[in-house]
């Protein structure tokens, strides 16, 4: 009976994983297909990957995507961490109000955020381009960082901060040496989350980019209309793997760090 139960539950789990990853597996397989057909396997090739690296528009889009993801995640992490600390020190009523205000953009439909950001940039006569995508990404990343840092801020003991002051540290030294390390797990997961959110984003980028600048997602979208080239499968595979690896690091890094600490 127990055996049957565990066999069934394994079966169920495999099905879920299959349905979730089958489309991605198809994409990965097709990216190595030498023919252009989506239905027929014509032989293994890595040509599409080579073609992808050689394609200057794809590479420019990739550079933009990574730079924007990194910069927006970094700025959002710095601002979000400081904001979380400040919010935590507020009186309960204002704390609740501010937390609700920061939570709303996360629930807001991307298309609404995208259009309203675009209108806002135009209203303030900011020409659309790389910088507007960056600003937009920082904006939508902020709440995610605050949300992931907040629990750590709440846990952090006030006493360790005071102990650092007591031992002669200035408030800034105490923050760097004692408070920040305590918040670090929340800060890194906030950064990882922001980074992947930015990599993933299409809709907001679509509305806030100017002419002549593309990220991977907007490039794929514009190519879809012309008929998809298998280089796009190769590119999508690379994006998937990047996000996958970043998420894995985000999830397992704290455990690795703990293990290393234990062995030391």
């Amino acid at each position: 009976m127990e055996k049957l139960k565990s066999a069934l539950s394994n079966c169920y789990l495999s099905l879920i994983v299959l349905f979730m990853y089958a489309p991605i597996a198809t994409l990965v397989v097709l990216s190595f297909n030498s023919g252009r057909s989506r239905a027929q396997w014509s032989g293994f090739t890595t040509d599409w990957y080579v073609a992808m690296w050689a394609d200057e528009t794809i590479m420019a889009a990739l550079r933009n995507t990574v730079i924007i993801a990194f910069l927006s995640a970094f700025v959002a992490t710095v601002l979000g961490t400081l904001a979380a600390i400040a919010i935590n020190n507020m009186k309960p009523v204002s704390k609740n109000i501010i937390m609700s205000i920061t939570n709303v953009p996360m629930l807001n439909a991307d298309i609404v955020t995208g259009i309203s950001l675009m209108l806002c940039f135009i209203a303030f006569r900011i020409s659309l381009g790389f910088h507007t995508i960056l600003m937009a990404h920082i904006t939508f990343n902020l709440p995610y960082v605050i949300l992931s840092v907040m629990p750590k801020v709440r846990q952090a003991s006030k006493e360790t901060y005071e102990a650092a002051l007591d031992l002669g540290a200035t408030p800034f030294q105490a923050f760097l040496t004692v408070v920040l390390p305590e918040l670090m797990p929340g800060v890194t997961s906030g950064f990882m989350l922001a980074f992947t959110m930015s990599l993933d984003d299409f809709i907001i980028t679509h509305f806030t980019r100017g002419a002549g600048i593309d990220t991977i997602s907007t490039l794929v979208y514009s190519q879809v209309r012309k008929g998809i080239s298998p280089t796009m499968y190769a590119l999508s595979t690379v994006i998937f793997l990047t996000v996958f690896i970043v998420l894995m690091i985000g999830n397992y890094a704290p455990e690795w760090a703990k293990k290393r600490k234990r062995t030391v």
Binding site: S157, E159, T160, E162, A163, A164, D166, L167, T177, V178, P181, E182, M184
Partner: peptide, 12 residues
């Protein structure tokens, strides 16, 4: 210097 009630050692 102060010795705090909950020790307040730096855990990291």
């Amino acid at each position: 210097n102060t010795v705090f009630q909950k020790y307040a050692l730096f855990p990291h």
